[in-house]
Design a protein around this nucleic acid. Structure first.
Lengths: 251, 251
DNA sequence: CATCCATATTCATCGGATCAATTGGAGTTC
DNA sequence: GAACTCCAATTGATCCGATGAATATGGATG
């Protein structure tokens, strides 16, 4: 007899006023009733329209702000964001950060597939000017790596810029956004931190050079292979260091 | 002049008490201070620890609940979820739903790449029993498609089950989760709805059969090609119908 | 020992109050 | 008349307290 109360959760049944409010606003956006950049009614009015208290509406709005669907500006109002994929997908980096111990390998596998494709696409799309910029990034990275007290933070930033610049020219905003967030800052930083071995750093830089040469040659297949090989190297490096480290540390 | 006030958003500056509370809880999880399944302090206590009002904390918790990081149970408490990738990545389906007009093609491109890889991986991993189950799904789909009033809802569900079952056996939970959410329910439903042409439905079913045969043969490369071709067919079908439809409708 | 029930705990929701930031117009100055 | 200054209205941000609803817990009962 107790279980009778459970069946109210059938399908899309009432799972709370706030959840309903969130879904309503979502649906308004999907239906085109709310468009990117549009201003929402003031909290008081919108709360009345949805039949909830203002405080409750705020929690719904807050949830949508957290997932980058809405944006609030104090003293002005609440607006729908651009809803661009790179905005809405950037919550993924947190997911990647959480699983840096257990699932880092799985994330890297996905990233390898996507980055290979993106690099191949970019080979025929990236402008000459950005290819030059790409070369500058590599020059700077090699300079940093040559210094005695290696600035790992700087290397991480340059590495991120290198991959982001290529991905941004693959001609697919969704693909670029997913790649960008597939390895969060924490993951990327940890990977580089793990490369205390100077040889690993130099190998990474050589692989970057190889990708760059393939892009210069506008050779999609070469670019795809070098990009895949590069990420694969990181995967194997990570698996190797993991075997040594013994998994005990979780700083 | 006025724009000078924009620079206050430098780096990680204070962007609000709630944002700070969200990031604090996130960091506690990343640092391992909060583990999956663990119960959080009661709202009153946690609010005091973070130095915010209870109502403010609730908005932070609500945001984390929306992104499936936390789970609340009335009368019991607030818990950290399993944090499994399939949970945390399922907000992506909403992103896909929003961009079903403009960016559906880009999402499908990414899905094609990932699904090809996942199917290839599954070819050597999926158990025999699930291969049989896969065949049953196809039999049922063909039965449904043969009826005069074709039940499109049923076809959508069977299609989703087919792809989900394959993806779940690729040996990579992250890959499976991303695929699963790459095309939201709305997108998938719309694609099938667009296939009012019986020929398109039959072609889709034939492609599913081809993928199934490749899996039965445990042939990764065949499976990869058929899977990629299948999604590519959807892409081209979508591009074609879009050219005809004229983009005016947004029901 | 099993079952039922009262109570405490905890989250859900609500209404209001105060603070802070932005906006837009009234008023002033040159 | 144009530009600037300043103030008040608007609007979100944050906080407080109260009530309702769902769950767990422990005691009473058979």
């Amino acid at each position: 007899m107790r279980t009778a109360t459970l069946m109210v959760t059938n399908g899309e049944a009432d799972v709370g006023v706030i959840e309903t409010a969130i879904d309503t606003i979502k649906q308004m956006i999907i239906d085109g009733e709310l468009r990117p950049g549009q201003k929402l009614p003031v909290e008081k009015i919108l709360a009345e329209q949805l039949g909830v208290a203002r405080n409750t509406l705020r929690e719904a709005v807050r949830a949508l702000v957290a997932m980058r669907v809405l944006q609030t500006r104090q003293g002005d109002g609440t607006y729908v964001t651009s809803l661009s994929p790179d905005l809405l997908l950037d919550g993924m980096s947190f997911v990647a950060d959480i699983h840096l111990d257990a699932g880092a390998g799985e994330f890297l596998h996905v990233r390898r597939i996507l980055e290979a494709e993106a690099t191949a696409l970019a080979a025929t799309r990236i402008p000459d000017a950005d290819l030059v910029h790409l070369g500058d990034l590599l020059d700077e990275a090699e300079t940093v790596a040559a210094c005695d007290p290696v600035d790992h933070e700087k290397l991480v930033a340059l590495d991120q810029d290198f991959h982001a610049l290529i991905a941004s020219h693959c001609g697919n905003a969704v693909l670029a956004a997913v790649i960008q967030n597939m390895s969060g800052r924490t993951v990327r930083a940890r990977i580089w931190r793990g490369m205390s071995d100077p040889e690993a750093v130099h190998r990474t830089l050589r692989e970057h050079r190889a990708v760059h040469r393939a892009l210069l040659a506008r050779d999609s297949e070469r670019a795809r292979l070098h990009a895949a090989l590069h990420v694969l190297g990181v995967e194997e490096s990570l698996a190797g260091s993991r075997a040594f480290a013994g998994e005990a540390s979780h700083d």
